[in-house]
Design a protein around this nucleic acid. Structure first.
Lengths: 189, 189
DNA sequence: CCCGAATGGATACAGTCGTATCCTAACAAT
DNA sequence: ATTGTTAGGATACGACTGTATCCATTCGGG
């Protein structure tokens, strides 16, 4: 049901999401949609929550795949590489995510839910980078939080250019790797 | 009239834009809105065009203010510094721009208009950076287009974090300057 | 057995949407 | 002076929206 919502949001936009459209997409009656989600607001929030859960799942999946050698750089490559859409499903999810992000800019209720994950991500990576700095993996004159903010902003910006088909996933990944090389590269300690 | 449209789009979102709302905001009757813009589609496109014109004006204004010493780095600082919102008006315009960008992801008609300026910007900066490279201002092993793409993505990502009030304009500018230092810094030639 | 809760189909309601139509004015050119 | 174009007020239309109501099932515990 929430899947039907996200399918519509990612292909036709959040403004095309109506209770009747979701009912049709999910193959149920309007009443059923009303039954499981009392409000449209509740429905929208459930979509955002599900989107966050998917993102979380993807990061963990990717981290598990690259397990064993979880270097600080590996963690960053996994997380940032997950933000930029890399297959059709993650592209669709990114579309929906962008739609939600934009809606949240003018809808405080959505903003509260939507900012949770990005903030958690920034905190998580900052902790990791601070630890990496103390271990001598990156130069001491770098400010971990600023670096993390820059990398996340870069990943988000690249996501946009990938979504609008200005750039391929590979091109975006190369740019990220380039920046990670700079951060974790030689002359770090 | 188009101003009324952008005022609504930037404060209440593009989905809150209706012909009647614009009429009320502009203090005219519904018929007048219909008269000057035959379609809602035409109305939306006029808003996007106006938004691009404003952005263009701002860049030129900033370039003129920093005139005289138009180093390659100065050009980049001016352009990227203009992308990240720096006052209330540019913040509102960025809000509207984001709304349009998102709408364009699922509306081909808007995408055609909306991709013109970003592409022109990337081309413009790439030409500048290529020239700077030939003049020895940046290292020969850098790929100008890739660098430009990375910087624009960074500026766009930072814009988002500024809009959602995760970061101040000053913090964003500092991150950009840091990256420009790296690109144009010593050891370039 | 049966009765209340969970589940869901059908339909109705008031509002908003984009668009179209009908009717005045004003003003410029013939 | 009349005619045509530009400009705009008032209102109507059908489509769609979120939400509410009324009713029919199904099903598990008393």
């Amino acid at each position: 049901m929430t899947e039907a919502l996200l399918r519509i949001a990612s292909t036709r936009g959040l403004q095309a999401v109506s209770m009747r459209e979701i009912a049709a997409e999910a193959g149920v009656s309007l009443r059923v949609v009303q039954y499981y989600f009392t409000n449209k607001q509740a429905l929208l929030e459930s979509g955002l929550t599900e989107l966050g859960a998917r993102m979380d799942r993807r990061v963990k999946q990717r981290a598990a795949a690259a397990a064993g050698e979880l270097t600080p750089r590996g963690v960053f490559a996994a997380v940032l590489g997950t933000i930029v859409p890399f297959d059709e499903q993650s592209r669709l999810d990114s579309m929906a995510w962008t739609a939600y992000y934009t809606a949240a800019l003018t809808d405080p209720a959505l903003a509260a839910v939507g900012l949770t994950l990005p903030n958690a991500l920034e905190d998580f990576l900052t902790v990791r980078l601070t630890a990496a700095q103390q271990a001598g993996d990156i130069a001491p004159d770098r400010d971990p939080r600023t670096e993390v903010a820059g990398l996340l902003a870069l990943a988000n910006g690249l996501t946009h250019s990938v979504l609008s088909r200005q750039r391929s996933h590979e091109a975006a990944t190369k740019i990220i790797d380039y920046h990670l090389d700079r951060l974790f590269g030689p002359g770090a300690a």
